[in-house]
């Protein structure tokens, strides 16, 4: 291939680029662009086109007429949504589960990380880490199936109780215990994986601080309180804020899989609501309205959470630039 060789400084991307004309930059960077295009194409088709597709929330959409042929109905679907008791049940369940997990799930990885960090033997620690990270890579179907085999009506616990002459007791179908069950499943699956970021933060704490405190007579617990926890504070705050920004996302599959066993009253969350209401009945626009509602509230929460993060002097998920 015949090619004019450009001046050397035009080849290096880290040197001053602002002065080069667009044509020269294109000639220099076309390969980089070509590498990016396929991924961007998929992103546009499967993210941005559906994002625009949310306009059907303002229509009475039917697949035969398409977006162009379906009648516009303004905010009708949203009015319907807000007067739908099942929607409020789903919203209430979602928010309750988030709040519950904030108290009973969120601190677990922190405690586990501190515990792991205190294990002196490196090999033992790596072994335990390997074990507790693992369930993160199991699918929800698998996790629910395992829980069912251990705690379900025909599971190991019931089997053991029955053989010991007790009345078996099925946790998997009890709506009142459902929130505890899903939190236990989340802890089992993801709390170990969640320790990674805290372990890294713990490793970054200067050990001289501990030594100086110990020399000054600070006990183990005082060191934990005055050195370890302040050292973890930025990470804890960051993850807390991220979690709040994600309050309407409690996960889909876990609830979808167990909704039949405990009933919609306890197990319906926003995502499963959209699924059952739309794909089962063909109310496309209504489902899109529910999805759009969730997406927009999520967007607001993330933006607010980041504002709060910046106020606390933390980075948040995006920087101000």
């Amino acid at each position: 291939m015949l090619r004019k060789s450009p001046p050397a400084d035009a080849l290096t991307s880290s040197a001053g680029t602002g002065r080069l004309p667009l044509r020269a930059r294109l000639r220099r960077d076309w390969q980089l662009l070509a590498m990016t295009v396929p991924a961007v194409g998929l992103l546009i088709v499967f993210h941005y086109v559906p994002t625009l597709g949310n306009v059907i929330a303002f229509q009475d959409y039917s697949p035969y007429d398409g977006i162009t042929g379906s009648p516009w109905v303004g905010f009708y679907n949203f009015q319907w949504l807000l007067s739908d008791p099942e929607f409020w049940t789903a919203l209430r369940n979602t928010v309750t589960i988030t709040a519950f997990q904030l108290v009973f799930y969120f601190p677990v990885p922190i405690a586990l990380a501190i515990l792991l960090d205190s294990v002196l033997s490196r090999r033992l620690r790596l072994f335990i880490q390997g074990v507790v990270y693992m369930p993160h890579f199991f699918s929800w179907v698998l996790v629910v199936a395992l829980f069912q085999q251990i705690l379900g009506g025909a599971g190991l616990l019931a089997q053991t109780l029955r053989q010991a002459g007790h009345e078996p007791w099925n946790v998997m179908t009890n709506p009142d215990a459902f929130i505890v069950l899903v939190t236990a499943q989340s802890v089992w699956k993801d709390a170990g994986w969640g320790t990674i970021i805290f372990l890294a933060a713990l490793a970054a704490i200067n050990t001289n601080l501990y030594e100086a405190a110990a020399v000054d007579g600070a006990s183990r617990w005082r060191r934990l309180w005055h050195i370890t926890l302040p050292g973890l504070r930025p990470v804890i705050l960051l993850l807390l804020i991220l979690r709040l920004g994600d309050a309407l996302n409690v996960g889909f599959e876990q609830f979808f899989l167990q909704r039949d066993a405990v009933g919609a009253e306890a197990a319906e969350v926003l995502d499963t609501f959209v699924y059952w209401r739309t794909l089962m009945t063909g109310a496309w626009s209504y489902g899109a309205a529910a999805g759009l509602f969730k997406g927009l509230v999520g967007l607001i929460l993330i933006v607010v959470a980041n504002k709060v993060a910046h106020r606390f002097g933390e980075q948040g998920i995006y920087k101000r630039s």
């Binding site: 993210h47 997406g295 999520g298 995006y318």
Partner: peptide, 19 residues
């Protein structure tokens, strides 16, 4: 930026299904 924006907003199940 196109990629980063996806962290803020998910299009939702129904439009994704329709596409």
């Amino acid at each position: 930026f196109l990629f980063l924006l996806t962290f803020l907003f998910t299009p939702g199940m129904i439009p994704s299904y329709l596409i």
